[in-house]
Amino acid sequence: MSMTSQTPPSSGGQSLRQWLLSDTPTSRRQARLSALYQGWLALRQNHMAMVGLAILVVLISIALFAPLIAPHDPFVQDLANRLQPLGSEGHLLGTDSLGRDILSRLIYGARITLYIVALVALIAPVVGLLVGTISGYAGGWTDVILMRITDIFLAFPRLVLALAFVAALGAGIENAVLAISLTAWPPYARMARAETLTIRSSDYISAIRLQGAGPLRIIIKHIWPLCISSLIVRVTLDMAGIILAAAGLGFLGLGAQPPSPEWGAMISEGRRFILDHWWVATMPGLAIFAVSLAFNLLGDGLRDVLDPKDSAS
């Protein structure tokens, strides 16, 4: 093998593009990068998905640079200045019942929202993937036991089960995340199991079995890569629900605790003044709406790109 095209050419954007779109990749890295780039090109065709992605990029930058962006300290109270309307002096989005700047609280709240979303997105799909693929590949009693456990979790309304967990574990963001994750994994397990059932009887799994591969290797290296794309899509579509569940727990006083600027908790606080001072509850509500919408749009676009049924042949 020639070593000449192992590295991307450094001169000019056009040749890098050609290198990425080459029909005859000459190294593992080129082949992988090329596949990623073509996925990106397909995603870029979907304008709504790009809008969603843009909102999320903005949200992440806001969360990262919160101390630089926020005009005020989100925790400093100014009772003389409470319940100021939109656009008032120094408070673009007004102040809440304790005189805290709502814009600053929303900006810091983005951190909490992302923290919750990231943790749930790390826990629930991984648990679901493990349970689902093991259940689907092993079959027999393993399948029966794991799927009945999944059924038990699925039988409860999600928020009620999360409430029960939080009540048992104690209020707080970490426990809210844990509770949401514990209630969110069963659908992923079901989905991963269904995919595994169709994949495991396919010829390419038979072929790798005939090379003497063990069940662990087959599940991790051959079944997971095919399940993960649909899981990613499902996770992005579920993100909205997760944010809402976290906000719901916050609203009920079982998630983030005051004075934490969690968006759901902020709505809960503003509820008392919703008729006279509507913006106190509405602004965090709009923030939740925007982020949920962004995740939904992105998820929809990702589904078009990642769907294994489309790209398989």
Binding site: R28, A31, S202, D203, Y204, S206, A207, I208, L210, Q211, A213, K221, H222, P225, L226, P308, S311, A312, S313
Partner: peptide
């Protein structure tokens, strides 16, 4: 060793030729 009937079904859709042969 065995060669399967349908080459559209017997190769993993997410693995390059290199991955298939290297792992084997």
């Amino acid at each position: 060793q065995m060669v399967f009937q349908d080459p559209y079904a017997s190769l993993h859709p997410r693995q390059s030729v290199d991955q298939v042969l290297s792992e084997t």
